[in-house]
Structures are given as C-alpha cells and as structure tokens.
Design a protein around this nucleic acid. Sequence first.
DNA 1: CGAGTAGTTGACGATTGTCAAGATGGGTGG
DNA 2: CCACCCATCTTGACAATCGTCAACTACTCG
Lengths: 235, 235
Amino acid sequence: MNSKASCTNCALAALCLPGGLDPPAIDQLSRIVRRRRVLRGEHLFRAGDSLQSLYAVHSGAVKTYLTAKDGNEQILNFYLPGDLLGLDALERESHTCSAIAMDTVHICELLVCQLEEMCHVLPKLPHKMLKLLGREVATSHAMLLLLGKKSALERLATFLFSVSVRLQQRGFSEREFNLSMPRDDIANYLGLARETVSRLFSYLQEDGLLTVQRKHVRIHDMDRLRALASLTVSN
Amino acid sequence: MNSKASCTNCALAALCLPGGLDPPAIDQLSRIVRRRRVLRGEHLFRAGDSLQSLYAVHSGAVKTYLTAKDGNEQILNFYLPGDLLGLDALERESHTCSAIAMDTVHICELLVCQLEEMCHVLPKLPHKMLKLLGREVATSHAMLLLLGKKSALERLATFLFSVSVRLQQRGFSEREFNLSMPRDDIANYLGLARETVSRLFSYLQEDGLLTVQRKHVRIHDMDRLRALASLTVSN
DNA sequence: CGAGTAGTTGACGATTGTCAAGATGGGTGG
DNA sequence: CCACCCATCTTGACAATCGTCAACTACTCG
C-alpha cells in the first residue's frame, strides 16, 4: 500500500514543504515521504489523536473540521494538492481538529519522528515549517474577518475567488472548475445555511457573473467577483 | 526608556515564552529581552510592517485586528499578560495584522535577529515557538466555530468564560473582574453589534447569572455560564 | 427503472442589525 | 468642589438578512 514518493519530480513541490529548499535537500526529504491512498470519507486523523504524522495532499481534496460539545461541526479549511495538514497538532502533540478525505486522495505522509531528525540535517526545514504554520494563521485570520463582518453574498464570492486563485496556482483554469465539495460543506464553511448558498448561486447566475450547474462553475466576470470578495490578500 | 527585564523573576514566565525551559536557559533568554512602556492607542506594529520583534505582554492588554479593503475592521484577539504576539508574521517576514495597546502596557520586546541566534544556543526554543504558534492556530479555530455556528448569547457567554479562565490562570479572581475593552470591541470581536452585546449583558443580569456595571463584571453562576459557552476546550 | 442523495425554490419567521433617543459616568476646568 | 461635557453605554422601535420548514426537481448509482 505504501510507496516511495519523489518530491523532486513532483509538480507541487514549490507550493509544498520542499518549496524553497535546494535539490539535494529535497532529495533527502523525499526519503522520509510515504505515499498512501485514502478513500472518500476516511479520516487522516481525528481531534484528540496523538500526533504521528504530517500530511501533504498529492491529489484530491481534504477538509478539516472542529466538533463542538453539542455535536455542531464547523469546517475549518479545504486542503488542495500541495497543502500541508496537521501543523496545528504541534502545540499539544495531539490533533485539535479532524481531517477527512472528500474524494479519493493520494496523500504524502511524513512521520514526525523522522521529520524531527530531518530538521537537524536540514536547518532550513524548521523555518519552512514555521512559515507554513504562519500561513495557516493568516488564513484563519482572513476567515475570522469573513465570518465576523461579511454578508452572505460577500462570503460566497470570497470563497469562489479563493478557490479560483488556488486552482490557478496549481496550473488549472481559474475561470472554469469543478467544486470538490457539496453545497452543505460550502455553507458550513461559510457559516451559512445550505439554502442560502443555493439561492446565492442562482442569484449570481441570473446576474450573469457566473454559470453554475451542480459542482461545475464557470466564472464570466472575474473583476466583479473580485470586487464582491474584496479580499484582504491572503493566499 | 528601554530597560532590562528578568524572566527569571517574572511571575508570568510559565505562561510565556520561557515556559518549560530550565533556569539557566531562562536566564539566557532574559538577556535579549527589553522592556518598554507603550501608551493606550499606540501601535506595536501594523499590518505590512516588516517583522522586527516579537512581543510579550508584561502588564496591560493589547488587541490585534485585521483591516479589510473597505476599511472594515475585525478584532482577532485580546492579549493578556504572558501572551506572545507577532508570530503570525513568520510566514512573509512581515506582519499580517495590526496590534494596538488598549491601556498603558508594559511590553517585553524580543528582536527577531537576536531570537534566531538564541534558537541556535537553546535548541528547545524553536520547538517552544512552534507550540505557541500552534496554540494561536487552535485559538483561531475555536473562534471560527464561534463565529460560524454560535448564537449571539453563546458568543458572549463563551467570551466571558474565556476571560474568566485566562484571568484565573494569571492569579486573578475568576468570578469578579474588570473588562479591559469597551463594548464596541467585544461586539467587533464576536461579530455582533454593540447594541446586541449591551442587550445580552442586561439579559444575563436580569437572569441572575451575573452582575455587570460598565466594565465591572461579577459572575454568580459559573456552571450556567460554562453551559452556555459549551466550549470545545482551547485555552 | 427505482431509490436515495443532493440541490433548488418558495413561504414564513426569528434573530440580529440599524437608527434614534436618552442615560450614565469619568474627567477637566472654572 | 461642583458643573459641564463628551464618550460610552443602554434601551426602544423597526427593518432586513438569513435560517427553517417544506415541497419539489435533478442527478447518480445500483
């Protein structure tokens, strides 16, 4: 099941943990990476699990979520190829949220014990991890602004714009793509009801800003989308 | 204006960056700490500033906030004595949010260039920083759940409970305290309107759960407050 | 082909925001 | 020491956004 992986040949290396390292270092890092397949609905980890590994998405999509005492769930983030998961567990050595595969995912697993050894060999690596964790913080902050201050329409626009940007970074079309998550997940992530998201998609379509059919989205007016989103930067 | 500080004699050391280090290491860390006074309304840093220093609150309170393109502001966190600020800047080497003193604050400043050298001398230090950054992420995640899923009443209860816990950790009363921020800031932080916060305070008082007079709060029924908050843990 | 899941749309209501007016209290200066 | 003033807070009335409930449609998969 497990197999070796080569970060050197991976198109996503620049976005991922190896980003910024020199070729010999990337080669060394490759040696502790094991690639695995995870099926839709399987967990990479659950809140409370002790920290064993960090994970990099190679293909597919993963979502993380937090469960409240009353069972309420809040989706925290969607992870696309090249994104690193699990960094939040570094505080208590155990995961603070849960991660689940949204479709069939190929994941690169890095055992923490091996990663720590690697940190001694490659002095740039801890710094790189700090940076990725810093990005995690910045992303969360942008979401706090979204949830605290933005209207439903602005939230959806921000989400779509962010997906568009991230897909473009990964070499896909920024104007036409398939959403990997159902309406329920989008709504949950944005702090809205499923019906509200549905209505807003319809509204944006009538408005001519985009065409949507289920998961398939084609953006017609990127400028107006950006304006609606009025992002603070991030990602 | 600047003066030396001793982490060794600081009552907050356990909560702060020195927490978990051994006495000689704390002593070394002390050497690069400069204590400064910052007046109410002065900025420690602004979004976009290049990263010069990390800051630990010694006394007083600091808030961080994000400004949207349209000028909208979202308060991200309130920092109490012992809390470390500025870690979010590690991604891009520049601050992603702004930090402002809420009253007269005594702040411990750590120049990043000196801190990096110190990281080579004290190998536990980078790990400690990762942990503190991990906590920052966990705190943000708890806020995402609050803003995405909780009612106005649950938000205020969660906030008050969290303040109570943090003050207790710092040796103050958990049942009676003065809020260091005005209603506007509480409302902003919780994604509500000032009037809603005001009404909820009145409601909780009529309900007998607490007594409130402006900034002064006395909690009568901690169990019901905890139940209303129904936290996921964090802090 | 049928059943179940996901998505859409409509009607209605509740929570919370907005606008406006008034109350409280701390601080300053006479 | 008192009085005034300004910032902060409170309360009320009303409105709007968004959530809930319900019915219906469309698509997928066995």
